[in-house]
Computed example of a mutant assay.
Amino acid sequence: MPTLFGLPVGWAAIFGLFQIVLGGGVLASWIKNRPKMREIERNAETKLRDDLIARVERLETRVEETRSFYERKIERLQADYEAAQRIARHELANAKMRFRALIMLLKRLPDPPDGLAMILIDIENMELEQAKNEALEKGVVSAAKITSVAPVT
């Protein structure tokens, strides 16, 4: 006969002890319901995964729409900027032409004031220096554009 803590115990007592410790049919119901609980857990995980996938897809769609919106906005801003640049260049060219015409008229004055010839020579020299500096700057800008273009991979 088995003993528990030195006392003789029968099989009925052992099963009774198991019943008390395990709360009656808790073990049996746990074993019986375990497949259903696993199925519920799997269904919950599947639903969570599907919900997360749907949410990510919605976010990706919104990101793409936002990116597309801002790309169009940037293109419009670039077009506006380029148009404003063209107008400014045209206005500057006109101002330069009017300035040169004024210099030409001042050179042809029949009775020029004293020192005007030297002033006009200085102005012409300054204009030549400015044209040279502008040409150098254009070269630097063009070189920067060429070197900044990286191949798209």
Rank of each mutant, 00 (worst) to 15 (best):
F69Y: 08
K32A: 10
A83Y: 08
E71P: 01
P112S: 07
E65M: 10
G24T: 02
R108F: 05
G115M: 01
D122F: 08
A144Y: 11
D114E: 10
W30D: 11
M37G: 05
Q130M: 11
E124F: 04
A28V: 06
E134R: 12
R108Q: 14
P110F: 04
E127Y: 06
A117W: 04
R76N: 07
E82F: 15
F18V: 10
E91K: 01
G23R: 00
E65N: 11
P8G: 06
V152K: 03
A101L: 13
R38E: 10
V149L: 08
T3G: 05
P151V: 00
G23N: 00
E45P: 04
P151D: 00
I31G: 01
V56W: 06
A93I: 10
I121D: 12
A143H: 07
F5E: 13
A150S: 04
D80V: 01
D111S: 12
G24S: 03
R76W: 04
L92C: 05
E127T: 13
G6A: 01
M126G: 07
E124K: 08
S29G: 03
D122C: 04
T61E: 12
I123T: 13
A54N: 11
R38F: 09
A83N: 03
A12Q: 14
S148F: 02
R58A: 14
A143T: 07
N94C: 11
L77V: 03
Q78C: 10
E60M: 07
E39P: 02
I119R: 14
R55A: 12
L52K: 15
I14P: 00
K96N: 14
I14D: 01
E124G: 07
G24L: 03
L109S: 02
G16N: 02
I31W: 09
G16K: 00
D122H: 08
Y70E: 00
E137L: 15
R89Y: 10
I121N: 08
M97K: 15
T3K: 05
T3S: 10
S142T: 09
T46I: 13
L59N: 03
A144N: 15
I146W: 09
G115V: 01
I20D: 03
L128E: 14
L136K: 14
G10M: 00
M118V: 06
V26S: 09
I31Y: 07
R62E: 15
Q19M: 05
K47N: 08
N43Y: 01
I40M: 13
E64A: 12
R98I: 04
L120N: 02
T147K: 09
R55Y: 04
T153V: 09
P2L: 06
E39A: 14
M104Y: 15
E82H: 10
A83T: 00
G16P: 00
G23S: 01
D111W: 04
L106I: 01
I40L: 15
R67L: 13
R42H: 14
I121V: 15
L116G: 01
K96T: 13
D122Q: 09
F15G: 03
I53Y: 06
